[in-house]
Every structure is written in C-alpha cells, then in structure tokens.
Simulated assay, not measured.
Amino acid sequence: MKSFLKIKSVRSSLTLLLDDFCKIKGLSSSQHSVYTLNDHITFGEWLKKIQRINDQHPIEGLGLEIGALVQPNHIGIVAYIAQSCNTLSDYIDTLSKYEKLWFNYNPKKIHFGENLFSISWDKPAYLQAGLYVEETSIVEEMQVSIIYHHLKQLVDSEENFFHRVELAIPEPVNIDKYTALFNCPVYFNADKTKIILPKSLLETKLKCYDPALLEILSEHANILLQKMPKYDSFIELVNLSTIQAMENNNVQINFVAKVLNTTPRMLQRDLKNRGITFKIILNNVRKNFAKKHLRNENLSITEIAFLLAYKDQTSFNRAFKSWTGLTPSDWRKQYNSDKMNKYC
C-alpha cells in the first residue's frame, strides 16, 4: 500500500492549482518548492498538500471548488493535446493514453454501452486501511470536477455533459452542491468512481482542432511517457487479496494465491522477482489496519487481534511492538494524547 503512495504521482503543475485556490481563499499556500516543467510529486506528498488545505478550509465539496479553477497549464501537455484533437472521441483516447503524465493514479477505464459510455477508476488499497480517507475523498471530487470543467473548456456547447456520476466517497450532508454543478444525479458510497456520459457526445467537434500541433505534441508526450517510472499493479492486487484474506480470518499464502488464481509457489516467485515477500506484505497490511482499529475506542485489543487474524492477543502484542516499539495499548494512549493536544 505504501508503494502506491511513493510510486504513483501527479504532475507538479497541479500544485499550482492548489496554490491558486489558497490565494483566492486567503489560505496558507501548499506551494513550497520550485519545480521544473515536467516534474512529478509522489502521491503521498500530494495527499499531504490536500490535507493541509482541508485543515484550514474543511468544507463539503472542497475538491469540486479546487477542480473548478483548472486551466490547461495545470494539466500540462495532456491538456494541449486535448485542445488539438478533432472530436470528443479523440479526447477520450488521449485521456486513456496519456493520463499518467498529469495524474498517475489508478488507471481510468473506458466502457462503451449502447447509448452511454463511462470513465471509471478503482479505489486504491490504502483507502481500505483507513489511510488518507478525507484527502482521498477530496481527490476523487477534484478529478471529476477537473474532467467536467476541462470538457467545458474544449467544447462550445450548453448541452449537459454528464448523465450520471457515481462517487466512491461517503455521502455528504448536502448533495445539492454536487447535483447543481454536474446537473445530473450524483450517487455516493460507490465501489468505484464513475462518470457516465451520453455516447452521442463522442462526435462533438472540439473548437481548437490542429492536426499538425497534435502530431508534434503526441510525439513529445510519447517520449515523456517512456520516462515515467513503471508501477507494478501486481503488488496492489496482492495487497487487496491479502486484505480479503485477513477479513476471512485466513492469512495463509495458499488463500491469497487462490484468490489471484495462481499457486503459492508461483506467487512467492513473482514476489521475489519484485524484491518483496508475502510476509512483508502481510505485516504491512496488518500494521496499517492495526493503527486504524486502535483509533476506534470501541474495539478492545483482543477484538483487534481477532480482526487481524491473529491466534491470540499475545501474538498481536508481540508483532505490533516489533513494528512500532510500543504495545498496542501504549500506542492507543499516545494517539489519544496527541489528538487531545492538537485540539487544546
């Protein structure tokens, strides 16, 4: 799960979008570094910048407001390629091919139906462990808002773009802000974030079609794409399968291998080739979930040990102390003390 936060990234120019929002709202800027044109920052660093803004300006729909300020320079070369495309269909192809140059998150999937098509992406494994929950909700809102406003910039049309939006975030108290922006039904607590659009929009002409510029920009984007670090989605799948194994109280490698439709020997070999072991992945999953559960005062240490698929509390205590240097009880006391001091 941590590998996702270290290897996945966003284009550094998106921090300028956060900076612009801070200036408008009179907030302390999230921008502290000078980046070159094609720099990226890790996803973990990006989430911390979002966290800092949310601490100062905690409102529902924060991501919608940040995304509404998007301009082509925030997205970079992908936006300029999109501007040079002929139709919205070309733009969708560009989004699929080059998205990681500006937002290297979970890959977007395009599905075409009879009358509708959709753009969707999965939730990352770290979210299930309770990491960066609020910040990720803001990022989900921001992505959908950026796509919406970027489409508006590309097309001269008053026609509704979105048919329906499904957000993989908790339902807010007031959903009017969401439905008013997208002018369509918006659903929450979805398994994945999904934007559904009318298929008829695909033939919509874009207003700045330039085939010569499109070719030049695409060639440059292909070069940049080759330089991007490769993220191995296999590790993310093993993380997700290990979480499933823990929830089934069976954290044996045999169970995880079966979920992944492979054998324990092949799974061990594939992990070894990537410089990691199943034991390390299992410990990371357990450690993240242990901290999540310890924040919940309604759960006893014994109950947490059971949720993490340990045979007994003693085994959990021993493992947790090896990770943090503290017993689960001491870690919980320290967490509660730090939380109290923060709000005093």
Rank of each mutant, 00 (worst) to 15 (best):
E219L: 13
E219S: 13
H220Y: 14
H220S: 12
H220P: 00
H220G: 04
A221G: 11
A221F: 10
A221C: 12
A221R: 13
N222A: 07
N222H: 10
N222L: 07
N222F: 05
N222Q: 09
N222K: 11
I223T: 15
L224N: 09
L224P: 07
L225F: 07
L225Q: 10
Q226I: 05
K227F: 07
P229V: 09
P229L: 07
P229Q: 08
K230A: 12
K230Y: 14
Y231H: 14
Y231A: 11
Y231V: 12
Y231K: 11
Y231Q: 07
D232L: 09
S233Y: 12
S233H: 13
F234C: 02
F234Y: 15
I235K: 12
I235Q: 10
E236Q: 15
L237T: 10
L237G: 04
N239K: 02
L240C: 07
L240E: 08
S241A: 15
S241E: 02
S241Q: 05
S241M: 02
T242R: 02
I243K: 01
I243F: 05
I243G: 02
I243P: 00
Q244E: 08
A245S: 06
M246L: 09
M246N: 08
M246V: 05
E247W: 03
E247F: 02
E247S: 06
E247I: 03
E247G: 09
E247H: 06
E247A: 04
N248C: 12
N248I: 05
N249W: 09
N249Y: 13
N249D: 12
N250F: 03
N250H: 10
N250T: 06
V251G: 14
V251F: 04
Q252N: 13
Q252K: 15
Q252E: 14
Q252G: 15
I253H: 05
I253V: 15
N254S: 13
N254W: 05
N254F: 13
F255I: 07
F255Q: 13
V256Y: 00
V256A: 00
V256Q: 01
V256S: 00
A257K: 02
A257C: 09
A257L: 00
K258G: 01
K258A: 08
K258P: 00
V259Q: 10
V259R: 02
L260E: 01
L260D: 01
L260C: 06
L260H: 00
N261V: 03
